[in-house]
C-alpha cells in the first residue's frame, strides 16, 4: 500500500508497479458508492482507477475576527478588496498575512493558487490541470506580482524562508491576522500548547475572493502489492481506510473532510469544533473550485518555490522570469 502523493503515483504508474482498482470496485459497487464518482474520477487515468482518495481538500482562509473588527473590515469579495484589507490591517497595527516560502511554500501558494484559480476561465482551467507545463501565462504572472507585494508589505519579517510551523505559530500567537489553510488546522486553535486559551473563539473562516475555494481530492492510496495475496491484503486495508467508517474516523479524530456526503460530523464534533461545520458550509457555498499547486504541479516545481520566491522579492527576477523558470523546471521532470 503506497500513499501516491508528491509524484509517487506517476512513478508507480510509469514503472508498471501498481495495480488499478477497477476490478475490485466492480466486485464491490457499495464501496465505489461510498467513495463517490467525483473522487474516483479525480484519480482515474485512461479509464483506470490508480488510487483511492480518503479525503477532500477544501481550503479557504482563517482570519482573526478581533483584528478584523479593529481594522473595520470583513472578508474580501474581490482581490482588490483583499489588498485593501491588508492595508487597513497594517494601518491598524497588525501584520495581515501569515506567509512562508520555505518547504513547499504552502500558505503562500494557497493564495497564489487562488488568485490564479479565480482569475477567469483560463486561470481556473490552469489550476484544474494536472502537471501544467507552461507557467508563462498572464494569470500566473499577475498572481506572482500580487504575491510579491504581499511578501514585501503585508507579512511577517520571517516569511521568506520560513516553514509551515512559523506561519502557523504567527497566526496562533496572534502575530498575523490571516492564514490560508485547510480544516485540519481547526483542532490547533483550541490546543493550548499551540494557541492561547480561547483563541478558537476569535477565528473565522472565509472563501477566497471571487468565492473561490481549493477543492480537490487527495491522491490517496495505491496498491503496489507484488503477488495476488499481497494485492488482496492491501485492497482490504484500503477499502477499510477509504470506506464510510474510515472516513468517519478521519473526520472525527483528524478534522479531515470526507469524500462522501454520507459521512457527516457527529453532534459532539459540531459542539467541539463549530468552525469545522462552518468550514464545510463555506465550502458548499463557494462557487469557483480548483486544486492546490501541490496537487497539480510536478514535485520538482513544488521544491522550487523556496528558491524562487526570494528571487522575486529581492528583485533578482521579475514575475515573467519566474514564470519562465517554473516552465523550465517543469520540463526537466522525467
Amino acid at each position: 500500500m503506497v500513499m501516491g502523493k508528491n509524484g509517487i503515483n506517476d512513478i508507480l504508474i510509469k514503472g508498471n508497479l501498481a495495480t488499478p482498482f477497477n476490478d475490485y470496485l466492480s466486485q464491490d459497487p457499495e464501496w465505489a458508492k461510498e467513495i463517490g464518482d467525483e473522487a474516483l474520477a479525480a484519480n482515474t487515468r485512461d479509464g483506470k482507477v490508480w488510487s483511492i482518495s480518503d479525503q477532500k481538500q477544501t481550503v479557504g482562509y482563517f482570519y482573526n475576527k478581533e483584528m478584523f473588527d479593529k481594522a473595520g473590515i470583513k472578508p474580501a469579495q474581490t482581490w482588490d478588496e483583499f489588498m485593501s484589507n491588508n492595508e487597513k490591517l497594517k494601518a491598524a497595527g497588525f501584520v495581515p498575512l501569515a506567509l512562508m516560502t520555505g518547504e513547499n511554500a504552502w500558505t503562500t501558494n494557497l493564495i497564489l493558487a487562488s488568485i490564479v484559480g479565480t482569475s477567469g476561465d483560463a486561470g481556473n482551467k490552469f489550476m484544474n490541470t494536472l502537471h501544467p507545463s507552461d507557467f508563462n501565462t498572464p494569470e500566473m504572472i499577475g498572481a506572482l506580482n500580487q504575491v510579491k507585494t504581499m511578501l514585501e508589505k503585508y507579512t511577517t519579517k520571517d516569511a521568506l524562508g520560513a516553514g509551515y510551523a512559523n506561519a502557523a505559530n504567527n497566526f496562533c500567537q496572534a502575530k498575523a491576522a490571516i492564514i490560508a489553510n485547510g480544516p485540519w488546522m481547526i483542532g490547533d486553535f483550541s490546543d493550548t500548547t499551540k494557541c492561547a486559551a480561547g483563541f478558537d473563539q476569535k477565528v473565522g473562516i472565509a472563501a477566497f475572493p471571487g468565492n473561490g475555494m481549493i477543492s480537490s481530492y487527495e491522491v490517496g492510496y495505491m496498491n503496489g502489492g507484488k503477488t495476488q495475496e499481497t494485492r488482496d491484503a492491501a485492497e482490504k486495508f484500503i477499502r477499510f481506510k477509504t470506506g464510510l467508517e474510515g472516513q468517519r474516523i478521519a473526520l472525527e479524530f483528524g478534522n479531515v473532510v470526507p469524500v462522501s456526503d454520507q459521512v457527516q460530523p457527529s453532534e459532539a464534533l459540531k459542539q467541539k469544533y463549530p468552525l469545522l461545520v462552518e468550514s464545510i458550509e463555506v465550502g458548499n457555498q463557494s462557487q469557483v473550485h480548483y486544486g492546490s499547486l501541490d496537487s497539480i504541479v510536478y514535485p520538482n516545481v513544488t521544491d522550487a518555490w523556496k528558491l524562487l520566491y526570494p528571487e522575486l522579492v529581492f528583485g533578482k527576477s521579475t514575475a515573467e522570469e519566474i514564470a519562465k523558470k517554473l516552465t523550465d523546471i517543469a520540463a526537466k521532470n522525467k
Partner: peptide, 25 residues
C-alpha cells in the same frame, strides 16, 4: 536554505539530490 535564495548556497551534493529525487533524473 535548501540551496537558496536562488542558487546562492547550492552545492553539488544538494544539486545531485535535487536532480535525482525531485527531477527524477
Amino acid at each position: 536554505t535548501g540551496g537558496g535564495p536562488g542558487n546562492t548556497t547550492l552545492n553539488l551534493p544538494m544539486y545531485i539530490y535535487k536532480t535525482a529525487m525531485m527531477d527524477n533524473n
